[in-house]
Design a protein around this nucleic acid. Structure first.
Lengths: 226, 226, 226, 226
DNA sequence: CATGAATGAGCATTCATTCAT
DNA sequence: AATGAATGAATGCTCATTCAT
């Protein structure tokens, strides 16, 4: 019935950040295919986040993407590989962006605060945050997804945090030396914030930015000047 | 063929802590019914944890519980309410146990360490830890579960932690006064440990106990004597 | 809608020859299951014969058998194994009957005529004849069916015919000694008759009985008295 | 990837016997179209023989023919009419060849042996033999194919055989006068040989040539000289 | 109460056919 | 003419739920 349901008008997770001149018609074959594929990925992510892998219907994805059901199979082998590729496609640019840290000028705390700011803006409370929860939810049934996520995001993030922590210790900004062994502690409140937004936001709103600040105070000692 | 698969011999999550006289033969009607119900809950939890709500088949639950499929419907209205009741049934005794804190003798750090010890033993890396991940996974599709979990576990846990933090601040054990506004920070590494066990244990084992100790050092200042 | 579509009233291929007292109610669980299974086999055979394996819809089989689609899967793993088992179930009793030849009294020609008479009555122009054509049609795609058919029917039939031919040669009834090397020649017109009925009956009716008689005249020499 | 799979290099069934000057470049529009059509027919026959009508995918035909899927629809209305036309196109030249019998010099047996030799070389164990089996398989679902096959092949073949048999009877070569009423008996072993090759060759190889010789011995009396 | 055979709505996937390029 | 991306009806199979025994 409703052929083109306005194509998920919300800000695209997939394309955000791309700088290609979308204004131009640019409707050659390859472009159209890429657009459709992106629409499918976008729609699939919405549905998977909202319902989980097993409960998501390809019919709904197709409808939301504005394509026919069969079209999905022109781009993905089956539902499972769609899910797996989807995670890759969405995660990779985020990682790329987050790991492009500003040059190490200023204090370690400044660096970490910049990182946290990015995270707050790009992940917490966004579709991407929901995706993190989705990975937590489906990881055990999709080892390849868990593997990918560990390899591309977690291990890198842990390594980056460890490097910063060691720098902070060397410069005397961080007192607790054992922290370098558990960079997870540095990240934990941010992860909790992500999950909290998904599950409990309506029960008790959480000021993630303020919480992260308090957490950094705990690690670096309270700041004299805000 | 394999009709009665010996009912998942592992330590029951459901009954631990119950004090009903199981020793007695007690094969009256009511007892038998209660046993069956417990077996179903136990089996359902295993299956839901392993596959998620949507992908779990009642057939498998019945087989694991050693009952017929129809029997499940004598105890639960349908799959959804089974899941919802299941979470209640499993969560309640855990909460009861965790909140039965020892009397506030000794330092606040000692109290929190006792709590963390319990958590390490009873939750992290156990079936109950998996249940937490399951709630994170299915929460958005089961508002009643998320509501229940928030009300019974999260809000209580947060309140309890806040009380302890305030006590610690009052006694001078904790320096960071803002921490009382975000007890989540205190709990975050424990939650991360729970999730880490489920998803990344095989990629990189995590010494949760040691990590929690480091985290407490961060909050209370390093301990002079271990 | 049409719940019980009168269950293919035609003479059952599956049960024909059984002498169980169907008059009795006899509706215990096992009996009912066997009846349903038989109904499915019956219906499946009709559909497979009429449309071939690939073009047959399980929906139609179910409707014709008077059961729900899911019921089929209580009895057969999938469409393929249903087809394979079906051939076995239908073929076996036919083989049993045909190989129960009358005791070798009288001439070899009498024996073979008795056999041909059976074949005319039980196979040519019947559902079972159609099944033979179906096996010819689907054999290449179902090696297991071709294997089974060769092992249970063809090799036995060839061996039995060879024994009769050798007996006929020994007794001087058959002159052509090389015939023992190709019992297929003896059977060939009967097979042609089977196929002719399926394909060309409406173009040119074939008196199979008379044709087989002429063929035997060819082999044994013309009969003096019919 | 493998766009043009070199077009099934084996001897073409479709073109064999054609005398068009393929050597010339001859790339005008009409010729190119005819070549494509021939490639499609060739590919379609391979696929239909291998999988049967219903299980054959146009995709596979197109790939094998080295054309795009849509191109098939420039030559054929749909899958059904492609199958129907295909049978015509392939059968006609075979019939033409087989019915071009050598002038009736020598004995009737010689004529029939010449015919059998042709059949052995051109049909039994070849792609065309498979096509016969395909017609047997799909005939009931394609009355037009069965009609065509009966009209063009079967009725002509039967008439030709009958003429030969009557000649043989008249000349005293054939004793069994009733044979003229059932020319099918003359052809039956050849048909059985065709089917045997398709289905049971790997179970028990059949020397078709020798079998046909024995069959002729049966009809004509054993030959004095080989 | 307990059972498990039976049901049928629901869904992933396929593939003949169309049509814009 | 030729292409192949797109379509969507069709179909095999699953599984939550029911109910006669």
């Amino acid at each position: 019935m409703t052929k083109k349901p306005s194509k998920a008008a919300s800000a695209s997770v997939v394309h955000s950040g791309s700088h290609m001149p979308e204004a131009a018609p640019a409707s050659n074959r390859a472009t159209r295919a890429a657009e459709r594929r992106a629409a499918i990925v976008e729609a699939a992510m919405e549905e998977f986040i909202a319902r989980g892998f097993a409960a998501t219907r390809l019919d709904d994805i197709a409808r939301r993407a504005g394509v026919a059901k069969g079209t999905i199979y022109l781009h993905f082998k089956d539902k499972e590989s769609m899910f797996e590729e989807l995670v890759r496609v969405v995660i990779v640019p985020v990682v790329a962006r987050l790991t492009t840290l500003p040059p190490p000028v200023g204090s370690v705390r400044d660096l970490i605060e910049a990182f946290a700011g990015n995270f707050l803006k790009e992940v917490i409370g966004t579709r991407r945050g929901d995706l993190v929860r989705l990975i937590v939810a489906e990881g055990p049934r999709f080892p390849s997804v868990a593997d990918f996520y560990y390899r591309e995001v977690v291990s890198r993030g842990v390594a980056a945090m460890r490097a910063l922590i060691e720098l902070g210790i060397a410069r005397g900004e961080i007192r607790e030396k054992d922290l370098a062994r558990y960079p997870q502690i540095l990240i934990a409140p941010a992860m909790i914030a992500v999950i909290w937004q998904s599950l409990f936001e309506r029960h008790a709103p959480l000021d993630a930015r303020d919480m992260l600040r308090v957490h950094l105070d705990l690690i670096f000692g309270e700041r004299r000047t805000t």
